[in-house]
C-alpha cells in the first residue's frame, strides 16, 4: 500500500493472522521493558527479531528501517546519558564534561530497549497490510468507523503532502518570497496553510455523502472483500503469548520488589 512500510510477499510471516503478529509485537514491547541488561536485549534482537524478518524475506528493509529509527537515539543517548551520568570510568573529556563508561552503557541500554520495542512494531508494519490488521481488530470488536479513519488517512495523506507542495510552488510562482526573515516567514503561513486546510475541509462533505450512499452508518455486521486465515494453533499461540507476557511482567515486578 502506498505511503506505508508494508512490503508485499507470500512468506509464512506474511500469512500469519494479524492478531498473532500484533501479540508478538506486544511480546517484544514487554521484552524491551523487562529484560535486565544490554546483553540480553541485543541477544533477544538477534535471536528473535532478525530471524523472523529473514523468515518474512524482509531482512534488508527491516534492518534499514531499524537503522534509520535507532541512529538518532544512539547518538542523542550516548551524548546525553554518557556525559551526564556520574561514574568511575572516565573515557573522554570535553570542555569540562566527562564521558563515563557507566553513562555510555546506560545510554546504549536505553537505545537497545527502544530498538527492541520499535523493531517489533516495524516488523508488524512491514509484514502486515494495514487493512488486514484493521479487519482483524474490527472482527474482535473495534468500531468500524475507527478502522475507516485510520485506513483512509493512511491512503490519502500522500496526496495531502503533494497538495502542500503544489500550493507552495503555486504561491512562489505568483511571487511569494520564502527566503525572508523569520517574522515575515510566520506571515507566509497564511497563504500556504489557508488553501491547504480549506480545500481539504470542502472535500469532507463529498466523502461523507459517498459514505452514506454506501450505508456507512447502518448498524449491524458488515462483510468484507478481504479474507482472514486463522487456525486453532494460532489461536492457542496467542493465548500462550499473552500468558508469557504476564509471566514476564510478574517476574520483573518480583525482581524489583526483592532487590
Amino acid at each position: 500500500m502506498h505511503g506505508t512500510l508494508f512490503v508485499s510477499g507470500n512468506s509464512g510471516l506474511h500469512r500469519l493472522h494479524p492478531l498473532t503478529k500484533l501479540a508478538l509485537t506486544f511480546l517484544f514491547l514487554v521484552f524491551a521493558a523487562t529484560l535486565p541488561n544490554l546483553l540480553w536485549l541485543l541477544a533477544a534482537f538477534v535471536i528473535l527479531l532478525v530471524p523472523m524478518s529473514a523468515w518474512g524475506g524482509l531482512l534488508r528493509p527491516f534492518l534499514r528501517s531499524c537503522l534509520v529509527v535507532i541512529t538518532p537515539f544512539v547518538i542523542s543517548l550516548s551524548i546525553i546519558q554518557g556525559f551526564f551520568t556520574p561514574g568511575e570510568t572516565p573515557l573522554f573529556h570535553l570542555a569540562g564534561f566527562v564521558l563515563t563508561g557507566e553513562g555510555l552503557l546506560a545510554g546504549l541500554t536505553v537505545a537497545s530497549r527502544i530498538l527492541m520495542a520499535l523493531g517489533g512494531a516495524l516488523l508488524l508494519m512491514l509484514s502486515t497490510r494495514p487493512d488486514m490488521l484493521m479487519l482483524a481488530l474490527t472482527r474482535s470488536g473495534l468500531p468500524g468507523s475507527l478502522a475507516y479513519v485510520v485506513l483512509t488517512s493512511i491512503q490519502i495523506f500522500p496526496r495531502f503532502q503533494e497538495r502542500a507542495q503544489v500550493i507552495l510552488e503555486a504561491q512562489q510562482a505568483r511571487g511569494l518570497e520564502i527566503k525572508v526573515n523569520i517574522f515575515k516567514r510566520l506571515r507566509l503561513l497564511v497563504p500556504l496553510m489557508g488553501p491547504l486546510v480549506l480545500s481539504s475541509i470542502v472535500d469532507v462533505e463529498e466523502r461523507a455523502m459517498a459514505l452514506e450512499a454506501r450505508a456507512f452508518s447502518r448498524p449491524g455486521r458488515k462483510t468484507s472483500l478481504l479474507a482472514l486465515a486463522d487456525s486453532p494453533g494460532q489461536h492457542l499461540a496467542r493465548w500462550g503469548l499473552l500468558l508469557l507476557m504476564l509471566a514476564l511482567i510478574g517476574w520483573s515486578i518480583w525482581r524489583a520488589i526483592s532487590s
Partner: peptide, 22 residues
C-alpha cells in the same frame, strides 16, 4: 468521521510546510 480522516492527513501534509519555508 470523514472529517477526522481528512484531519489526520492535514496533520501530516501541513507538518511539512514549516520545514519547506524554514
Amino acid at each position: 468521521i470523514a472529517l477526522m480522516a481528512v484531519a489526520i492527513a492535514i496533520n501530516i501534509g501541513a507538518g511539512q510546510i514549516p520545514r519547506a519555508v524554514g
